[in-house]
């Protein structure tokens, strides 16, 4: 059964429909990609799932429970971890303390006996940030800062991980390693929902893709099915314009390419 389900979620800002009747799901043990051109509503959907924004209509279910009106921190305690499109790290703390404070918070609300040092070190190692442990988080380059956010999300022991453009700022080698990490996380039983513009990473890491465009879900399927989907190609490349050369050239209207 899907850990996350959204049912006909809509979001209206003034006269603009940021999301219109979007129903998606994320299964444990799978990496699900959520792609679409800029402004498609991906981050808005993440904000609704995590509770940072209430939807205009529709519902969000976690493990079968309607959490539409549950507060942000309670949803986090129910098992949602996320990273942000625009970094939300604790800049005045060191990398270690970013993770540590999360583990300390979890210990408080979960009332579990947790070895904070051991747990912090394990997460730092998992995301590959041990050598930066003492560095102030706000001095890190973007790619490393995104790994701090990921480590922090993992420190909450989530069952659902929402990753919003985590690959932004990573070089090729780091992206490769990140893809392996995603697979690893899915193997641990996490449901991973990934928003990314790096199509190489998306196509390799995701077993299932959903495509948003102008706030609507226009396609859903395997990477191969999505690659061949005309509606998706139109969304990225622009329906009026004839395709320019091969499909791997940068799109005219959106960001990213479809390898």
């Amino acid at each position: 059964m899907a850990f996350l389900q959204t049912h006909e979620v809509s979001m209206r800002f003034g006269g603009i429909d940021a999301l219109n009747g979007v129903s998606i799901s994320a299964e444990p043990g799978l990496v699900t990609g959520l792609i679409g051109p800029n402004g498609a509503g991906k981050t808005t959907l993440f904000n609704i799932i995590t509770g940072l924004q209430p939807p205009t209509s529709g519902q969000v279910f976690l493990d079968g429970r309607d959490v539409t009106s549950v507060s942000v921190y309670r949803r986090a305690r129910l098992g949602i971890g996320r990273t942000f499109q625009r970094l939300e790290i604790f800049g005045s703390l060191s990398v270690r303390d970013n993770i540590r404070v999360t583990v300390e918070v979890r210990r408080r609300w979960s009332r579990q006996r947790i070895d904070i040092k051991h747990e912090t070190d394990a997460i730092l190692a998992r995301v590959g940030l041990e050598e930066f442990a003492k560095v102030p988080a706000d001095t890190l380059p973007t790619g490393s800062a995104r790994l701090v956010e990921l480590g922090r999300a993992l420190a909450t022991r989530p069952r659902l991980l929402l990753l919003d453009e985590p690959g932004s700022g990573l070089d090729a080698a780091e992206t490769e390693a990140f893809g392996l990490l995603l697979a690893d996380l899915a193997q641990d039983g996490l449901a991973v929902l990934l928003v990314e513009h790096d199509m190489d990473l998306v196509m390799k890491a995701c077993s299932h893709l959903m495509v948003l465009d102008f706030g609507e879900l226009i396609a859903s399927g395997t990477p191969e099915e999505i690659r061949a989907n005309q509606q998706v190609q139109d969304a990225y490349l622009g329906a009026e314009e004839p395709p320019v050369g091969s499909i791997t050239e940068p799109g005219l209207a959106g960001a990213g390419t479809l390898p």
Binding site: V72, G81, E88, G91, L93, V101, E104, W109
Partner: peptide
């Protein structure tokens, strides 16, 4: 202390704190 780290985190990113399960 851990409370001080928590306060610093709350100042830096209230949204980040809420998404790690902190009751602000």
């Amino acid at each position: 202390s851990s409370f001080g780290r928590l306060l610093a985190a709350t100042k830096d990113s209230p949204a980040g704190c809420a998404t790690i399960g902190l009751n602000l």
